[in-house]
Design a protein around this nucleic acid. Structure first.
Length: 201
DNA sequence: AAGTATACCAACCGCGAGCGC
DNA sequence: GGCGCTCGCGGTTGGTATACT
């Protein structure tokens, strides 16, 4: 396994690791307020933090940034995550970009700890396996609730079939290779209206 | 009450892309 | 064009909280 470039790794001098303290948060926020969220290495140095720039960036992006929403992901947001994931796969930053106030890390965690399990259980149930625990039952019921809402109304169905088409097109890409890159770039340049459709569903 | 298993999530790691020199 | 630096992304780890036995 080739080593990553030295510049991408935290050095021995940047020894402070683990959970951030309130004091560190405050120092970081102060420096960013003055210098802006860029040049993370120098931000870390200016703040007098024994942390690498990467760590500072992550802390800012996931916790200290203004307008961050934390916890309590709503049904609507969950629904949107499911749809976007179906469409985009594990493109967490893109998905997060469509959920104001949510971070890629939070969505990734939410997916890994909640949604992926729910989906597996749903598939298990669809294959005819018994759902045994109360926890499993709750998960399946929640998935049913989301699917039911998605299937309400003809306009929803129409949009859903459009999504399916887009998703299939996106991931099948004329049968060769994992992605149609030309299509993907067009998709990423799409205006907001298509995503508003997702919100309205 | 104590030990163990599981769930959750903050933080770290490695990699690749973009940019400037 | 090559090199080094910086940034952003997605995968993974590890600590803590909670549930279960």
């Amino acid at each position: 396994m080739p080593m990553a470039p030295l510049s991408s790794r935290c050095t021995k001098n940047e020894a402070n690791r683990g959970a951030w303290t309130a004091e560190e948060d405050q120092k970081l926020a102060q420096v960013i307020e003055i210098h802006g969220p860029k040049r993370w290495k120098s931000v870390a140095a200016k703040a007098g933090l024994n942390r690498c720039g990467k760590s500072c960036r992550l802390r800012w992006m996931n916790y200290l940034r203004p307008n961050i929403k934390r916890g309590n992901i709503s049904d609507q947001e969950e629904d949107l995550i499911l749809r976007l994931h179906k469409l985009l796969g594990n493109r967490w930053s893109l998905i997060a970009g469509r959920l104001p106030g949510r971070t890629d890390n939070e969505i990734k965690n939410y997916w890994n700890s909640h949604l992926s399990k729910k989906i597996k259980l749903k598939e298990k149930q669809n294959r005819g396996f018994m759902v045994q625990s109360e926890h499993e039952k709750t998960n399946v019921m929640e998935m049913d609730h989301i699917v039911d809402r998605r299937d309400e109304g003809t306009s929803t169905r129409n949009v859903d079939s459009q999504n399916s088409f887009i998703g299939d097109d996106l991931f099948n890409s004329s049968g060769e290779g994992p992605l149609n890159l030309e299509w993907m770039s067009k998709f990423l340049e799409m205006d907001e209206s298509w995503f508003e459709l997702l919100h309205d569903m």
